[in-house]
Every structure is written in C-alpha cells, then in structure tokens.
C-alpha cells in the first residue's frame, strides 16, 4: 500500500503519516510513504503514483493537489490498483474508488454559520486569507466558499473564489469582503497577507484563514497593528499548537479535523476491497466519506454545536 503526496513540514500530514504507519502494523500491510515539498504540484504527484504502481502497490492513498493527477489515477485503476483520496477529494470525486476526507465545504459552512451568529447585527469587514490566488486546490476553494456560504453570503459560482459581491448582506447584517489574499498556507505568508488587507481597510473585524499557520501569521499582523480586540479569527486544523493558541486568546474559533482517522478508515476499507472486492460506501447524501470535524471555541453560541479548547486538547494532533 502506498501513501502519496505527504508534506512533512506540516504537522497535520505528519500526524496522518504516523497514524497510517501504526495502522499498517495492525492490519499487517506494508506501507510506503512518499513525501513532497511544500508547494509541489501535480507533476510530482503523478510521478509518485506511477512509481507506486510500478512498485506493485495494491492500493494507493493519495492526497490530491490538483486535477492534473487524474490521468495517473486512471492508469493506476486500469491496472487494477485500488485508489482512494484522503484529506481532500479529487475533482470529480468519481476519479477515485472512494474519498476519505474532511468535508471541507461542510466544515467551512459550519464555521461560517458560527461566525455569522457571533457577529450578528454588526457591519462586518471580512479578510479572506487563502492558500493561493488561483483556483487550483479543492480544499482552498471548498473552505473559502463554504465559509462565505455558511455566513449566508451569495457566493455566485461555488467553484470560484472571490466572485461574490464585494459588499451586501449576510445572515444578520451587512458585510464587505476586504480582500482575498494568498498565504501559501504558511505563517509568514499569513502575516504579509493580513498586513496588506489591513492597509486596504484597517477596520477588518472577521478574519478567515485557510489553516492554523496562516492564522498565527495573521494574528501577528493584527497584534503589531494593535487590532486584536474585537476581531474574530476563524480557522481550520485543530492541532495542539492551535488549541494552545486559542487558550492564549489568539484564535476565536477553529474547526478541528482528524487526519489520523481519515488514513486509518481508508486503510481498513482498502484492505477489505483488496480481499473480497467490497466497495466502501459514502456518507449519507454525499459522494465521499466525511471523517468529520468539530468546531472548537471557548466562546460558545447557543444553538451551534461546539467543544471547548480543553476538550479539543484531548483530540488534537
């Protein structure tokens, strides 16, 4: 079995790798893990899929970066290899046998709905800190668009970031989207992006960030500008570093995801499918398996499910 496309500079993927290796021992399968550098593209991943097939892997778990890997996946499946997506789904989802993913759009919506309830009645100035400026990465699009939709904003084309009306109304008030800025999902990228947004409009009071590193960077920019008060910072990951940051008051709300669980479920299903051909079934009403998430906040709002940072600390990676 092969796990492809792992970026080991990110604790999220590190957790996925460690848990997958533990699960491999339990299931008695041999697992090869192929790592990539941050910012690697479809070409690198295509090669990794090809070499996994060449090495005789019966199943490949892939963390898809871009649609460009679909031909390589098709070749692998044609050769009789079981291919699952983990972490985020392929586009289209039917490119693989099954996707074990955080339903990023679903989670984004939950996060957006929480923020909308939190800032009800105010005019909000929203800064959107994405991964890239382009529209290539599904998780980038799904979280961004899910978040805005969750706030009750009309996102127009749900597969295009940044095409919503620059200002209008959301569930509970009026909004202006100040910026969509690329962060490369990193801490220094997050800081520069937030600084640029603050230059455009210093009254930003809702900050969406694609992941925790970019949220940490955004917090540094807000702190340097003396604007940490009354700003809602919403992000994704739920790592132990992130939960600590929330305890220090640097994050308002964090959607905790479970990378280890995705890999474990996918590996169990792959073993079953290789043995007797049982195809795994998706979550109700979806075309992928949603490994779930929880909203973490120490400022709960009645009517929206969430857990506290103390509870999340027991589940974090």
């Amino acid at each position: 079995m092969a796990l492809v496309g792992v970026d080991l500079t990110n604790p999220y993927y590190l957790k996925m790798k460690t848990d997958a290796e533990a699960e491999a021992k339990k299931l008695n399968v041999s697992l090869s893990v192929q790592t990539v550098a941050s910012g690697a593209g479809a070409d690198v991943e295509t090669q990794q899929i090809e070499s996994a097939v060449a090495s005789g892997a019966k199943a490949i778990l892939v963390m898809p970066f871009a649609e460009g890997i679909n031909p390589a996946i098709k070749k692998a499946r044609d050769a009789g290899v079981v291919v699952y997506a983990v972490d985020n789904p392929t586009n289209p989802t039917s490119a693989v046998d099954m996707s074990y993913v955080t339903g990023n759009r679903v989670v984004g919506k939950q996060l957006g709905a929480w923020v909308a309830a939190k800032v009800k009645g105010e005019h909000v100035n929203i800064a959107m800190l994405d991964v890239f400026a382009d529209q290539t990465i599904p998780v980038d699009i799904d979280r961004d668009q899910g978040f805005l939709a969750g706030m009750g904003i009309d996102v127009k084309d749900e597969n295009v970031k940044g095409d919503e009306a620059a200002s209008g109304s959301f569930d509970g008030g009026t909004y202006t989207v100040i910026c969509h800025q690329p962060t490369q999902a990193t801490q220094d990228g997050g800081r520069t992006a937030m600084e640029n947004c603050l230059s455009k409009n210093p009254d930003v009071n809702v900050v969406y960030t694609i992941n925790e590193p970019s949220a940490f960077g955004a917090y540094q920019a807000l702190k340097a500008a003396g604007k940490t008060k009354d700003v809602t910072i919403a992000t994704f990951d739920g790592s132990c570093d992130g939960i600590d940051a929330m305890k220090r008051g640097e994050l308002t709300v964090d959607a905790q995801t479970y990378p280890g669980k995705m890999a474990q479920l996918a590996m169990q299903a792959a073993v079953a499918q290789i043995k007797d051909g049982t195809k795994p079934s998706p979550s109700d009403g979806l075309d992928y398996y949603n490994s779930g998430s929880s909203l973490v906040t120490d400022d709960p709002i009645s009517g929206v499910d969430s857990i506290t940072s103390a509870e999340a600390a027991k589940l974090c990676f």
Binding site: T9, N10, S38, G39, Q184, A185, T186, Q187, D188, G189, R191, P213, F216, G217, Q220
Partner: peptide
Amino acid sequence: RTAAASPQAATT
C-alpha cells in the same frame, strides 16, 4: 517577523 521558527517559512 513570523514570531516563530517555522519549517514552512520563506517558501518563495
């Protein structure tokens, strides 16, 4: 600048 020693910094 990043208020951390981060392995992901300075990618560009």
